[in-house]
Simulated assay, not measured.
Amino acid sequence: MTEIDKIGRFIEAMKTVYGPFDQVSNDEAPGWSFPDDPGAGGHRGRYLWTDAFGVVNFITLFKETAKPKYLTLAKRLVTTVHDVLGRTRDGQKRLDGATDEEPLRGGLRIGKLDAKGHDGDGQYHHYLTLWMFALNRLSIAAGETEYNDLAIQLARSIHPRFLMHCLSGDLRMVWKISTDMKSVLVQSEGHLDAATGYVVYKLLQSTAAKQGHRNGVLSQEVSDYWNLMTRKGSLSPGNDFLDLGMGLWMCHIWADEPWAAKLSGKALVRVEELLGEDSPVMQRSASHRLAFREFGTCVGVACWDVSDYLETRVAALVRFWDGHLDSRHTEDELKPISRVMYATALNAGVARPR
């Protein structure tokens, strides 16, 4: 697939989620309304994880094409997400603690279709940190400090809600909290949540310093995550495609740090095993695989200089899904997240800050 072909497929995949934005002029872009059906596949058309990749992808299109409308669309998507997922499900008010001046003080909803239940709405730490990253990339691409400042606002607001002090005095994290951030919904700790918190919060702090203000603004939070992630046995590559991919992605941001070099080395070995021609996982039919999770691996690998063999295996994975992404094997509710991450797999672009 040539680079021109990749950009074409990239745009077509994004259009299935965000509408015919390629036909929008630079003057029309500020007023563009993203469709909520299918939208990002979540409540009122918004789903935080999908839209975080959507923002990053629009910035990548801006970088690849030099068309200002794509940067404007990234900003419009940010505003739309904050107006939907930064409010209660009925849209009547901002989440608890947030104001018009500080819209992210209440966090952001996941965007689950159901309000309650085992897969109901709430807030996920790993979705929120990914959104912070998207805001950070927009701040740098647009040369506007307000987006990184919003990310810092979100970071400081959610941090004490996901970290708990044990009776022993130790810190621990939780996986999911309620929409109003007042209760814990899932007590277990996400495998890479602490490390991702460290990576993203440190990135926000570094960007703020480069932008000439707020030195050390997240120093305590960064220290907390460091203490959590360096507990004995807490950092290791998983066996899941998405977990491995996002682990590689976060490691590359601070690739010179020993922990990142060690973890990424182990993860790349595991990825080569998973994507190998003789891997049982790769022999499964599309109906027994999840496209978006496998695209996560593609994004992670794209952040590193890897062997020709691994590059060919990633290319083979993308070709496989070229023929199955729109088939009946992909559940309708997963198509938006799969298509947006497919685009990122084709061109990781600004998802690679180094």
Rank of each mutant, 00 (worst) to 15 (best):
266 K>H: 10
232 K>Y: 13
215 N>K: 15
337 I>Q: 15
168 S>Q: 11
226 W>G: 10
144 E>A: 10
84 V>M: 00
197 G>R: 10
233 G>E: 11
62 F>V: 07
353 P>V: 09
331 E>M: 11
293 R>S: 12
63 K>V: 12
218 L>C: 07
268 L>H: 01
255 A>F: 13
232 K>V: 11
27 D>Q: 15
117 G>Y: 03
156 R>F: 00
157 S>T: 04
167 L>D: 15
200 V>P: 00
226 W>E: 13
253 I>T: 10
320 F>S: 00
233 G>S: 11
304 W>K: 05
153 Q>A: 07
108 L>K: 02
143 G>D: 08
298 C>M: 05
158 I>G: 02
271 V>Q: 08
95 L>V: 07
68 P>H: 05
148 N>G: 02
269 V>G: 07
176 K>Y: 01
84 V>R: 00
50 T>Y: 07
286 A>T: 00
287 S>W: 06
303 C>H: 14
170 D>Y: 12
82 H>L: 14
85 L>S: 05
67 K>D: 15
288 H>G: 12
126 H>P: 01
275 L>V: 08
228 L>T: 03
218 L>Q: 05
68 P>L: 06
182 K>T: 15
117 G>E: 03
46 R>I: 01
214 R>D: 14
30 P>Q: 04
167 L>V: 10
41 G>M: 02
232 K>F: 12
319 R>D: 14
56 V>A: 12
183 S>Y: 09
138 L>W: 03
244 L>Q: 07
289 R>C: 02
73 L>N: 07
